[in-house]
Design a protein around this nucleic acid. Sequence first.
DNA 1: TCATTAAATTGTT
DNA 2: AACAATTTAATGA
Length: 224
Amino acid sequence: MQLLRQMLDESDWWPGLDADQQQRVHAAIVVRDIDAGGIFSARGGLVAGWLGVVDGLVKIPIDAPDGRSMTLAGVPAGGWFGEGSVLKDEPRRYDVIALRDSRIAVMPRQTFHWLIDNSPGFSRFLLVQLNERLGHFIAAIEHQRLLGPEGRVARCLAQLFNPQLYPSTRSRLRISQSELGLLTGLSRQRVNQALGRLEELRLLETSYGGVTVVSVEGLDAFEG
DNA sequence: TCATTAAATTGTT
DNA sequence: AACAATTTAATGA
C-alpha cells in the first residue's frame, strides 16, 4: 500500500460517499512522510485532524511518571486513528511515532466534522471504530498484568489484525521482530522466542520480515 | 537476466 | 549485548 487513493478505496467508509463527497475529502487530505523513529505530532501540539496510515507502521506510546514507556496501540497501514482527540477538540495527548518509514494522511478536523454531518455511513463507521477501540483498551488493561511475554506478543498481533479497525491488513503482516519488540515493550530476543513458541502452537508462521497469522482467534484467546 | 554487494533481519550465545 | 547466518534489495554488466 503506497497511495492515498488506494488506502481510501480500502477504507470501509469510503465507498459510502458519493462522487462529490469523495472528491472533496480527497482534496482536503494532506499526506506527510515520516522517517523511521520520527515523531509525527508532539504531545500537546495542535490536532491537525484525523490520521490515517497510508504506508508503514506507527505506534502511540505513553510515558509513565517513572520514565518507563508503554505502547497504547500500534496502527498498521490502512488504519485510521485519533478520532477521540478530534471529536473532543482538544490537543492530542499522545505522541505518534513511526516504527519504520511511514506515510500519514491527515484529514483536517473541519472535513472530519463535515463528514459526520453529511455521511451517515461515515458516522456509523466511527461508532463501530470507537466501540472496537474501547474493547481494545479494556482488554489491554486486563491483560497487561496477567499475560506473559508470549501472551503479549499474541495479543499485539491479534490487535494489528483486528479487521474492524484495520480492514486491509492481510494474513501476512510485514513487521520485523524488533518492531514487535517496540510495540510490546519486550526485547527483540524475547519476541523471537515468543514467536517460536506461538509457531509451535500453530497460531502463526514466521518468515523473513514478517509473520503470517494462522489463527487470529487463537492469538486473541491465548493465555499464558 | 544474472552475479555481486550492501543492508536488513533473524537465530543464537 | 554481540555475533554469525540468512534473506532481501540494489546495482551494474
